[in-house]
Design a protein around this nucleic acid. Sequence first.
DNA 1: CATAATATGGTACAAGATAACGTTGCTGCG
DNA 2: CGCAGCAACGTTATCTTGTACCATATTATG
Lengths: 153, 153
Amino acid sequence: MHLMAHAHTAREKTRLMREAERVCASAGEQFTPLRRQVFDLLIAEHAPAKAYDLLAKLGGEAKPPTIYRTLEFLMKLGLVHRIESLNAFVACEVGACDRSTIFLICDTCGRAEEFDAGHALVDLGEAAARDGFQIKRTMIEATGLCAACKKAA
Amino acid sequence: MHLMAHAHTAREKTRLMREAERVCASAGEQFTPLRRQVFDLLIAEHAPAKAYDLLAKLGGEAKPPTIYRTLEFLMKLGLVHRIESLNAFVACEVGACDRSTIFLICDTCGRAEEFDAGHALVDLGEAAARDGFQIKRTMIEATGLCAACKKAA
DNA sequence: CATAATATGGTACAAGATAACGTTGCTGCG
DNA sequence: CGCAGCAACGTTATCTTGTACCATATTATG
Ligand SMILES: [Zn+2]
Ligand SMILES: [Zn+2]
Ligand SMILES: [Zn+2]
Ligand SMILES: [Zn+2]
C-alpha cells in the first residue's frame, strides 16, 4: 500500500487523460467534450473540488444537473471519486478503483491523497464475512496532517 | 474485531443511557433534557437517523440549529457518530469511539452496524506514517448485504 | 445577588442535490 | 427522404442539508 503521486505535472495529466479515454472507450461510452472538460478541471485541481465550484468553471450558463450528471458518469467508470466527508470530488489517480477507495485528507492544506487499496480492505472484508456481512464497496477517509504540512510546521 | 449488538432490547437501551450519563458527567458536561431526548431517539432507531427526521420528532416547534447543535455535542463526546455517506446519525454502540469508526451499511435494509475498530486501523495508520502522513481520525464505511437480508433472499 | 458561562430559541439563508421535462442531434430503418 | 429511437445536454423548479447570527434563558460561580 502506498501513496499515489499527485497529478501535478503536465505529463501526468496527459497520462490520466489518455487513460480516461481508454477506460471510456472500452466501456462503450462516449467521452464527450463536456465530460472531458469536467475531468480536465478535476485533474487540474490541487484539492477535492466541490460540485458548484466545478459548475462555475464551466461558465455561468451551466445548471446543477449538468455537473452532477457528468460527475455521476465519471464516477460510474471509476475515473472520479466522491469524498463523502467533504462533499467533494477528485479525479482517480489510479484508474480502476471502481469498488473501494482510501483517502488521506490533510486538515491543514485540504489536499486528499489516494492510497492504493491493499490488505486493509481484504482484512476488513474477511472480518465482516465472519459476521455474515458481505461487503460490496468500502470507503475509507482518514484525516490528519500530510507530510508537506508537517514539514512546514 | 466483531459486530456490536444492535440496541434493540430495553435492557440494552438502559445500559447505553447510563453509559451516556457517565461519559457526559466525566467530561464535565451537562446531559440536559434536550440532549437526553435526542440520544434517546437515536438509540430507539433501527437505522441511521436523518437530522430533519429527528427534528420532527422533537415536536413541530424545533428549528434546524437545535438538532445540529445537539448532535454536534453528542458527537464531540463520542456518543453519536455521523455516517457521511448517508448524511445520517447513529448512537454509538461501543461508547468510546471518539477517534475512529467502522460501519457496515446494508444496502437492502438500510441498517448500519458498528464494528469495533481493530487492527485494520492500526495497519492503515502505520502504512500512512511510512508516507509521512499522520492520521488523526479514520472513517470507514462499507456497504453491502447484511446477514439478515442475505438469509431473507 | 451579580456576573459569566453555557444552553436553547429563532430567523434567514447558504450549500448541496435531484425530479421532471424539454431540446438537440445522431443512427438506423422503412 | 421521413421518422422512430436513443443518448446527451439544457432548464426549471424544488427539495434536502447545514450554518451564521442574534436573542433569550438557564446554570455555575464568586
Ligand atoms: Zn481511484
Ligand atoms: Zn497538508
Ligand atoms: Zn462508536
Ligand atoms: Zn440488511
